[in-house]
């Protein structure tokens, strides 16, 4: 079986509480899982302020600033892509068939500071 583990957190809490994880700790755990042979892919994301949401309606690509925030819809899948810049990423995102009925939030990956 493959499993997707999604990390949710209040952004402030994620970085500013005494319990907040350091990048080095995150990196070490990911390494540990990798060495056990069970890691497929893992990335940290940049903050929600960098998010862009893409929809395709009536053949038109609709791009909007900000994260996807609609509690009535559920996460249905993910793509981890390599793109030259946001324009290319948005173009690929708009091509995901589910963008016709749902939406795709595009967020840059963050390099851990280790």
């Amino acid at each position: 079986m493959k499993y997707l583990c999604l990390v949710y957190s209040n952004e402030q809490l994620l970085h500013d509480s005494p319990q907040s994880p350091e990048d080095a700790e995150c990196h070490a755990y990911a390494e540990q899982v990798a060495q056990s042979g069970r890691m497929l892919a893992a990335e940290a994301l940049q903050g929600v302020a960098t998010a862009t949401t893409v929809r395709l309606r009536a053949g038109q690509v609709l791009i909007s600033d900000g994260p996807f925030a609609e509690t009535k819809e559920q996460l249905a899948g993910f793509y981890l892509i390599e793109a030259r810049d946001l324009n290319e990423a948005l173009q690929l995102a708009a091509g995901i068939p589910a963008a016709r009925v749902g939406c795709v939030e595009v967020r840059p990956v963050r390099q851990l500071a280790v």
């Binding site: 960098t50 862009t52 600033d65 946001l86 324009n87």
Partner: peptide
């Protein structure tokens, strides 16, 4: 904030 997003999300300095 707009400039931060341009940088962080890599909005390219380009004519489409």
């Amino acid at each position: 904030r707009a400039k931060q997003k341009i940088k962080a999300a890599t909005i390219p300095y380009q004519v489409p």
